[in-house]
Design a protein around this nucleic acid. Structure first.
Length: 714
DNA sequence: GAGCACTGC
């Protein structure tokens, strides 16, 4: 899929003249570093293993160098000789980008040449790219356009142990693609006539019978067998090996400094208090080195921060050199960056983090880790479809990951705030995400790939049956699936093409008929990103006043449109007198003044331009309803009818489709006015069942606009 | 009158 960022890259970096410049000493240093990696000792053997096995499981410990080195070994081992690309998937964008940059440097080329990366909004590859890092979700999207993934000779699925939904779906898909491609290659070998090559593929498809012919023929393309490598950090390679028919598994040693594990003698009743005591014990008794504390959420982090400051005031002057650095995902980036800055000499940093510090960010200088053994996790009840956030025990794998954070630069210590016997009771690893999320999107993608029997699909872990049925039902009600379970044309096909939740995609398609697609593009972009508003506790009143300037009595959707439009207007005005960079900087200041998270807003602008391009390619008409917000609200009702709710006498709301009783979240602009009938975006259970992003609608619209759900039966 | 861990297209 072409993206805006590709163009940016090519225009700014047109002739690849920014080739990495090396001084000889740096080149020498990189060479030595590469040689000293544990994986370097087994380079030849690994290349042989890949040659001899079509599927290989590699268990590589932290610091083994597998992610950066293996693709290079395979490149020099001849796996790109026939023009095939080596693709490496990562669960996270940052990892794909940073690893690609590192490997390009090691190869002495600019990123985008021989070594490149592709993530959503950013494609830094070219026709000469042979080693391509990407997110697993992006490769899934590529499969929709090229079901055989024919440009790849090798695909490496990295961090497979994390078992994200994308990884799991990809594994199932790759297993099937690999089988088809080797069958095709075998057939092709037996056919001397080049003209028959095309037919060879058809035969494979026919031979497999209708149930498994999900791969559409790709005419005229040469297909070679696909080499598949699954890389995992987990101790348990058996699951992957069994799934791939007893595939060979090899182990590569890591390089980590030793980490001392310390357990409490008794279970702690209050882990926050225990963490505080441990922080001060380390601070006063242990040699220098920063402390990383894993906590469950923003509120907990902020309260621990306050408590540390209180206790510090009681210490003698000389012992107060402790600097707190909070980090969690919704914290604005400029505040996040504080954890990466070096503390003044003699000052110890204590980093208070959510599990963002487990994998997503690596903080230098950590020597002590405090792990209370709990995490806030999303759970999903397939019977009700309710998502909730609960504090649960970590898994063994997670505890291991956390303690490893202490031994990256030097020997370290990890304080586990629970007894050793408790560790034995933890689950080995976290439940795969596919077993605890809504499946609508997964089903839509699989259907678009031609896989109709979802329950029969060869998942490494089968999702819950009720969950599948639930999602099939909602896709049917949205008009994406016909009664026979097949994707509808054009609605289902179009929905599958959009990188959005199915309901959002449906809203865009309907909006083009309601003549309010311009407004809907904005709303869907704003609903697709993390919270737009940022209200720090100490400035709660100010932030409320700021929000009032944008708020609409009709609800949160129209409020979001107001914010988006105000920001665009501000940016355009600023561009008249400033260059682009300065204008963007001014916008960030504007965001701060208005208590808007500028990272979320800029993300929303990216989503907006991507989905705008998508709907244009589909030939949908982008028109505006102007000031006629009635049309727009009717369109919302027609799309979000499954999330319609009626006010109850006590001020609570009853969801019509499920009979659940819920509350309007206090952050909604409709929290006070409480209209009779509303639609909402999402329902999350915390202390209460709260609905968020709410819009006022008319009760009578429902049977009119969603008869499939609210029609009167005769 | 309440707080939302983290990813991804």
């Amino acid at each position: 899929m072409p993206s805006m960022a590709t163009q940016n890259f090519r225009t700014s970096n047109g002739n690849f003249q920014n080739e990495a410049k090396f001084d000889p000493t740096r080149r020498q240093k990189i060479k030595e570093q590469r040689k000293s990696l544990p994986i370097a000792a087994v380079e030849k053997r690994l290349v042989e293993e890949v040659k001899n096995n079509d599927t290989l499981i590699i268990v590589g410990e932290t610091g083994s160098g597998k992610t950066t080195q293996l693709p290079q070994y395979l490149y020099y081992g001849g796996f790109c000789r026939e023009g095939g690309v080596i693709g490496i998937t990562q669960p996270r964008r940052v990892a794909a980008v940073s690893v690609a940059k590192r490997v390009a440097e090691e190869c002495g080329v600019a990123v985008g040449q021989k070594v490149g990366y592709a993530i959503r909004f950013e494609d830094v590859t070219s026709s000469s790219t042979m080693i391509k890092y990407m997110t697993d979700g992006l490769l899934l999207r590529e499969a929709l356009l090229d079901p055989y993934l024919s440009k790849y000779s090798v695909i490496i699925v990295d961090e497979a142990h994390e078992r994200t939904v994308h990884t799991d779906v990809l594994l199932g898909l790759l297993k099937s693609v690999k089988e088809k491609r080797s069958k095709f290659a075998n057939k092709a070998l037996n056919i001397n006539n080049a003209n028959s090559l095309k037919n060879g593929l058809q035969e494979v498809a026919e031979h497999d019978g209708p149930g498994s012919t999900f791969l559409k023929p790709c005419h005229g393309k040469r297909l070679s067998p696909l080499k598949l490598i699954i890389m995992s950090a987990s101790l348990d390679a058996r699951g992957f090996s069994e799934y791939f028919g007893g595939a060979r598994a090899v182990h590569i040693q890591g390089r980590q400094y030793p980490v001392d594990l310390l357990y409490t003698l008794q279970p702690e009743t209050d882990y926050v208090d225990a963490a505080l005591i441990t922080i001060f014990q380390i601070h006063l008794e242990e040699r220098d080195g920063d402390i990383l504390v894993f906590l469950t959420g923003q509120e907990e982090i902020e309260s621990v921060e306050r408590l540390i400051h209180e206790r510090l005031r009681q210490l003698p002057e000389g012992n107060r050199k402790l600097l707190t650095c909070p980090i969690f995902s919704s914290l604005p980036s400029e505040k996040q960056n504080k954890v990466f800055r070096l503390a003044p000499p003699g000052v110890r940093k204590v980093i208070l983090a959510t599990n963002i510090a487990e994998t997503s960010v690596t903080i230098p200088g950590i020597r002590y880790v405090i792990d209370p053994g709990v995490v806030k996790a999303r759970t999903y009840d397939p019977d009700t479809g309710i998502e909730s956030l609960d504090i649960v025990k970590t898994s063994k794998a997670q505890a291991l990951q956390r303690s490893g954070r202490a031994g990256r630069e030097a020997p370290g210590k990890c304080y586990r705030l629970y007894p050793e016997s408790e560790f034995g009771k933890f689950e080995d690893s976290t439940t795969p995400e596919i077993k605890r999320c809504d499946l609508s999107n997964v089903i839509l993608v699989l259907k678009a790939l031609g896989i109709d029997d979802i329950a029969g699909f060869d998942f490494i872990d089968k999702p819950n049956r009720i969950s599948i049925i639930r999602s099939l039902e909602s896709l049917f009600l949205l008009g994406a699936l016909a009664e026979d379970g097949k994707l509808t044309d054009p609605i289902g096909q179009q929905m599958a093409k959009l990188p959005l939740e199915p309901v959002f995609s449906k809203a865009l398609i309907l909006a083009s008929q309601f003549n309010c697609l311009e407004e809907m593009l904005i709303v869907i972009a704003m609903l697709s990103v993390e919270s737009i508003f940022y209200a720090p506790r100490e400035k709660l009143e100010e932030s409320r006043t700021a929000l009032k300037c944008f708020s609409s009595p009709e609800g949160d959707h129209l409020t979001l449109i107001n914010v988006y439009r105000a920001s665009v207007e501000f940016l355009e005005k600023s561009r008249l007198t400033n260059n682009n960079e300065k204008a963007e900087k001014n916008l960030r200041t504007w965001c701060k003044e208005n208590f808007i998270n500028s990272r979320s807003l800029s993300h929303a602008r990216d989503v907006h331009s991507q989905i705008k391009r998508n709907v244009e390619q589909m030939g949908l008409k982008i028109t505006s309803c102007g000031d006629d917000m009635l049309v727009f609200r009717r369109c919302l009702a027609a799309s979000f009818f499954l999330n319609a709710a009626l006010k109850q006498p006590d001020g609570a709301y009853r969801i019509l489709s499920s009979d659940l009783t819920v509350q309007i979240h206090p952050s909604s602009v409709l929290f006070r006015s409480k209209p009779e009938c509303i639609i909402f975006d999402r329902l999350v259970r915390t202390n209460n069942s709260y609905i968020r992003n709410i819009c006022r609608v008319d009760y009578l619209w429902l049977p009119e606009l969603a008869p499939q759900c609210y029609g009167l039966s005769e």
